[in-house]
Amino acid sequence: MRRILRVTPVLALLALAACQTVQGAGRDMQSAGQAITRESQEAQSGL
């Protein structure tokens, strides 16, 4: 039981760090998608 109590905070910190990492990756992907959208709109307007 004591071992579980020691490990739980460590697992909570790892989960929190993973959430931040995934959130950051999501923002990066969103920025890339917006850049692609802008470029494609510029290419279409140039035709």
Rank of each mutant, 00 (worst) to 15 (best):
M1G: 15
M1C: 12
R2I: 12
R2N: 12
R3M: 06
R3I: 14
R3P: 02
R3G: 06
L5D: 11
L5A: 10
L5M: 13
L5I: 11
L5T: 11
R6K: 06
R6V: 07
R6S: 08
R6H: 08
V7H: 07
T8L: 15
P9R: 02
P9S: 05
P9W: 01
P9M: 05
V10G: 01
V10K: 09
V10F: 03
V10N: 01
V10M: 03
V10C: 01
L11M: 14
A12C: 07
A12Q: 06
L13C: 06
L13N: 04
L13E: 10
L14G: 05
L14I: 15
L14F: 03
A15L: 15
A15N: 02
A15F: 13
A15E: 04
A15T: 05
L16E: 00
L16D: 01
L16C: 05
L16M: 08
A17F: 04
A17H: 01
A17V: 05
A17I: 02
A17S: 12
A18D: 04
A18W: 05
A18G: 06
C19G: 09
C19S: 10
C19M: 10
C19F: 08
Q20C: 04
Q20N: 03
T21G: 03
T21W: 08
T21C: 03
T21F: 05
T21A: 13
T21L: 12
V22C: 03
V22P: 00
Q23Y: 04
Q23R: 05
G24E: 02
G24I: 00
A25W: 11
A25K: 03
A25V: 05
G26H: 03
G26L: 12
G26D: 08
G26I: 09
G26W: 04
R27W: 05
R27L: 10
D28K: 03
D28P: 00
D28G: 02
D28M: 09
M29K: 07
M29R: 13
M29Y: 12
M29P: 00
M29Q: 14
Q30T: 11
S31P: 00
S31M: 08
A32T: 06
A32V: 07
A32W: 02
A32P: 00
G33M: 10
G33S: 14
G33Y: 13
G33L: 13
G33N: 13
G33P: 00
G33I: 07
G33D: 15
Q34F: 11
A35M: 09
A35V: 11
A35R: 04
A35W: 06
A35G: 10
I36S: 07
I36Q: 09
T37Q: 13
R38E: 15
E39R: 04
E39G: 09
E39V: 07
E39P: 00
E39F: 06
E39K: 02
S40M: 15
S40R: 14
Q41C: 04
E42Q: 13
E42L: 14
E42C: 04
E42D: 11
A43E: 09
A43F: 11
A43K: 11
A43C: 01
Q44W: 08
S45K: 12
S45E: 15
S45N: 11
G46S: 15
G46N: 13
G46T: 14
G46D: 14
G46Q: 14
L47M: 10
L47F: 06
L47S: 06
